[in-house]
Amino acid sequence: MLAFVIRRLLQSVLVMLAVAFIAFSLFNFVGDPVSLMLPPEATQQDREEVRKTLGLDQPFYVQFKVFITNALQGNFGISLRLGRPVSALLAERLPATLELAFAAALIGLFIGIPMGVYTALKRESWISRALLTTSLIGVSLPNFLIGIFLILIFAVWLGWLPSFGRGDVTQIGFWTTGLLTVTGIKALVLPSITLSFYPVTLIMRLVRSEMLEVLRTDYIKFARARGLTNRSVHFGHALKNTLVPVITITGLQLGGVIAFAIVTETVFQWPGMGLLFIQAVQFADIPVMAAYLCLIGFIFVVINLIVDMLYFVVDPRLRVERPGGGGH
């Protein structure tokens, strides 16, 4: 197991290096940072000086090393648009995005798994058919459309929920949370539902197909032949065996959800990293874009690692070393 963990950690470092490289390349390939920073009337000499102070006259690999060293210390430079340290900007926005993403992922699990189990066990019922059909619509509608529909119904027509912002937030150390105020929670409802559409559908379909497969296995037949109750067969034996792929996909989805929050955050003007990123793109605010890329990459990598570790918890075949099979 230790060897496995070390191998996965090394892989993660490689992935992060690749992401960092792409982020770093933004500086060189998306516009010229020097001309972005200087007024148009600056002389050639001014340019050379700025170039020097920024270290841009150094060879490529030296610059990359400097970038990585700074990044490891959380230093991504100054936002061109807002004139503040990028790391501080992201740190401010991170809680909003994470709360939104986790809320969406939880909805995905708590709605998706029961729906998947139901549609697998009651394959012929009209509710199952209805759920499956609706879920198809769920994945094929663009996310922003769902958001706009929800705003129209629940914010504009019914007036139950706010259509934008995060409500009142409470500061706990460096973390700002919207979960402790009524307005904060109300504000979370529509964006998190919007963002959860895709994971709910995905998890439901995944649980359903895995469950159908598991229900055909010999050990399920044997569990029935032993006279176990339906409850034990379905939830004790079948569901647990579907969880391994569900964990993987949900984990990976969480990464996806955080990344896709960009659209939802824009629709709901949710003050998260995604919104920050969109605004950064509009202003070619490269330090913010680069830092966002690195952070999202980092989150993906961490989630992947956690998912791999969870396998060990669920599946004894990975957990225990084979002690020679026992013989006869």
């Binding site: 010999d218 050990y219 037949k221 044997f222 029935r224 032949a225 032993r226 006279g227 065996n241 004894p316």
Partner: peptide, 20 residues
Amino acid sequence: VRGREIGAIFQDPLTSLNPL
């Protein structure tokens, strides 16, 4: 009745046990 009055052993014993 199953298990209590009539037990069963199936074709492939290798896959009859829940691996988890």
